[in-house]
Simulated assay, not measured.
Amino acid sequence: MAVSTSAGSPPSVAASPGTAISLRGLSKHFGDVKAVDDVDLDIADGEFFSMLGPSGSGKTTVLRLIAGFEQVTAGTIELAGEDVTAKAPFDRDVNTVFQDYALFPHMSVLDNVAYGLRVRGIKKAARRAQAGEALDMVQLSHLGNRQPGQLSGGQRQRVALARSIVVRPKVLLLDEPLGALDLKLREQMQVELKQLQRNLGITFVFVTHDQEEALTLSDRVAVFSEGKIVQLGTPREIYEQPSSAYVASFVGTSNIFDSTTSSRLLGREGTHALRPEKITLHPSGSTITDAGVIRTEGVITESIYLGTGHRIHVRLHDGTGIVVLEQSTGGKTDDQRGDEVLATWSVDDLVPLT
């Protein structure tokens, strides 16, 4: 799949076969603000694709441009090879699931799900049968006669999903659909959403500011900043090989060593990232002689119990602060503030940053 994020990319680059969405030179300006700035992107048929970034990074605006809710300032949008840049939302084979569900409160759950089929002129018996099948997919067939107000947040979100998939769009756009749910329910819905996407084979485009959610769900992730894609790759590539200090810091937690610290501490030029789970702490004075291992002494300034592990803050003897993530084990005594420790990590775990 062809993809480019550079400002000089020509908009005439052809999309690859099997491409569900192709964006070329896509820009959206609101006055002097460049909400989306010359984005080129291909999303494959049947892909679970996430757009990840903080508020104001441009990810939601790209979603709205694909849906047709906003008009482009420049560039083109193709869906399955068809240029839809100037087409109205109802002329695009996409559906959108919003965070606020947007269900009709006066309709039953079944009628809410069947509404899109009704608009398309499907006869009553057929649309109710298809709506029932969609409710089966989200495990809510037993609640078809209820009103939305009688459902929990998670159930309403499932209804919104069923309403969107019942018309079998080529692309389903999801605008932070799990943001209003509590943590436990959100984690459960993540699993169900991924299974649903696999079963349907529909292209899902998911917008989120939650990096864990993006890594959990996605085949690929585009990380946005200031209207541009700053890195595009699989979840593993984004996490293990961040391209910049911005990505390393935004996607998970990283220890960032600037050029001065890298030279002093690592004996290397340039800026580097090191994930907290790659660091091992030993009692001060331990003898570690493994080749390719960096060793440095420090003192624990904070130890935070997380249930599954500890997040430990260490001040190294040169003044550098690092964060270490240790998994909980039955035989290890908890590290305490003030403990002298030896911190070690493999040189192979250092990621050079641009």
Rank of each mutant, 00 (worst) to 15 (best):
L173F: 02
P283S: 13
F90N: 14
A134L: 02
D335R: 13
V205I: 15
E212S: 12
A214F: 02
G298C: 12
L193N: 04
V119G: 01
V62Q: 08
L193T: 08
G270F: 01
D339R: 14
L350R: 11
I238L: 12
I43G: 00
S244K: 09
G252T: 00
L41V: 04
G153W: 03
V39Y: 10
D334E: 11
L266S: 04
T234K: 12
A180Y: 15
V36I: 04
V167I: 15
P10Y: 04
A126P: 00
E176I: 09
S22P: 01
T85P: 03
L183A: 15
L63V: 03
E70A: 09
L161M: 12
K228H: 06
H106K: 09
Q99W: 10
V351P: 02
F224Y: 11
V299H: 12
A273P: 05
M137F: 01
H209K: 11
A74L: 03
V221A: 05
F206H: 12
A180F: 14
I300S: 12
L173Y: 03
I279A: 10
L173H: 03
A74V: 05
L215D: 10
S4H: 08
P105F: 14
L172G: 02
G307E: 07
T76Q: 15
Q211G: 02
S303E: 09
V36N: 13
V230K: 15
I66K: 05
A343S: 05
T203N: 07
D348E: 06
A35I: 02
D318P: 00
L265D: 01
G285F: 07
T19Y: 08
E176K: 10
I229A: 14
A125Q: 10
T308K: 15
F49D: 03
T296V: 11
